[in-house]
Design a protein around this nucleic acid. Sequence first.
DNA 1: CTCCAATGTGAACGCCGTAAACTTTGCAGG
DNA 2: CCTGCAAAGTTTACGGCGTTCACATTGGAG
Lengths: 219, 219
Amino acid sequence: MTNSSARRSYHHGDLRNALARAAAGLAASGGPDAVTIRGAAREVGVTPTAAYRHFANQADLLLAAQDLAITGMAAAMAGHLSQVPSEGDPVDLAVARLLSTGRGYIQFAVEEPGIFRTCFTGYLDRPEGSDPDLPGRAPYALLGEMLDQLVEVGYLAPEDRPGAEAGPWAAVHGLAMLLIDGPLRGITRAEQEAAVDRTLAMTVRGLATGPEAERRRDR
Amino acid sequence: MTNSSARRSYHHGDLRNALARAAAGLAASGGPDAVTIRGAAREVGVTPTAAYRHFANQADLLLAAQDLAITGMAAAMAGHLSQVPSEGDPVDLAVARLLSTGRGYIQFAVEEPGIFRTCFTGYLDRPEGSDPDLPGRAPYALLGEMLDQLVEVGYLAPEDRPGAEAGPWAAVHGLAMLLIDGPLRGITRAEQEAAVDRTLAMTVRGLATGPEAERRRDR
DNA sequence: CTCCAATGTGAACGCCGTAAACTTTGCAGG
DNA sequence: CCTGCAAAGTTTACGGCGTTCACATTGGAG
């Protein structure tokens, strides 16, 4: 886990990135609370105060770890999504893509709880009117595409499209939180998968407001 | 904020409860991370080490704060639920009660984020096969009753009842988390309410698998 | 070649959790 | 009544954390 590239000179040369990577590693194993200036510095083999040449404070370092975490999560979800077959009935396909996105989200949370939690930490003390393109929005954008496709194929009613992200995102995010940090932690793997299936089924059914969805229900 | 009952003698007499209440206060204003042995002791006007006569460690104190937090949350939700009218169409009523429960959950999270977060913290390092009646299950039980009622009135199909808690709970919990700690933090109140409405609507629609639900859809 | 700005180190402060040794106190039994 | 013990607080101390300030080293611009 320790960074292999030993420091050769007084000046590190890439300390900022090295610290950020170390911070991400700490986050992966211990969650955001484990992201510590002293810990990251120790990992890199440098004095704690050196970190202050590159990060304003611990929150700033955590932010860098968060960037890496979000990148990792986006990559994992993209990989998961890419395995969905791309041929077949358009409605089935759009639904399958939404399901895959949700499943990928939850699976990442369960497999990498530290990173997942790091993705969604630190919004508390963010400067007021700061970057509206907040991190953590990557899944949001991806979800938006899925919903657009659902509208295109007639599964989701167009009038229900605006603001439709909230529901599915909440369902998937909530289940992830309950599974890794909450009261559902510790349930068996089978129970876990059942909970995921039930939640996704409810979500998909809850979005079925379009004409194509009605037609399918009547069959 | 400081506890008014000043200590009159060397022995406090009710230090454990006083510390627990102080811890809950800290949790309310600063979340679970603010629950600190030294902080609670300071609040009560006692030496930090005195706390160790009543709590094994900081996690133990946090657990006590969590108990109070969960009690408070349950009370708030019960109060919210009690305002639902008790007469009218049975299906409407059952749905209204589910909606009120969900709305109460989210509203409490938004109004008391520190307490809410404290309710769902500390599951990470809980002893392995400990109390299966985990805290945080109170909402779970309440939700179970709502779902039972939905089955009774024919809105939710009986075969979909087992394990049906996961979906609604996840949706409501997830939205709460996104609103208070996540990327949805900082949206306007109107946007917030829209997100809640959309999420609850999706949830209720997603549970509509019973005969009575179909009949209503056809009208 | 020189000097300065960037980048690192060392020592120190106050906060935290926690342990060990000590002190105060209420109360049980003679 | 009084004696002594166990319960409940206090004092002191350790290490880890974030953070600051003064200082050391270095690479590269002029």
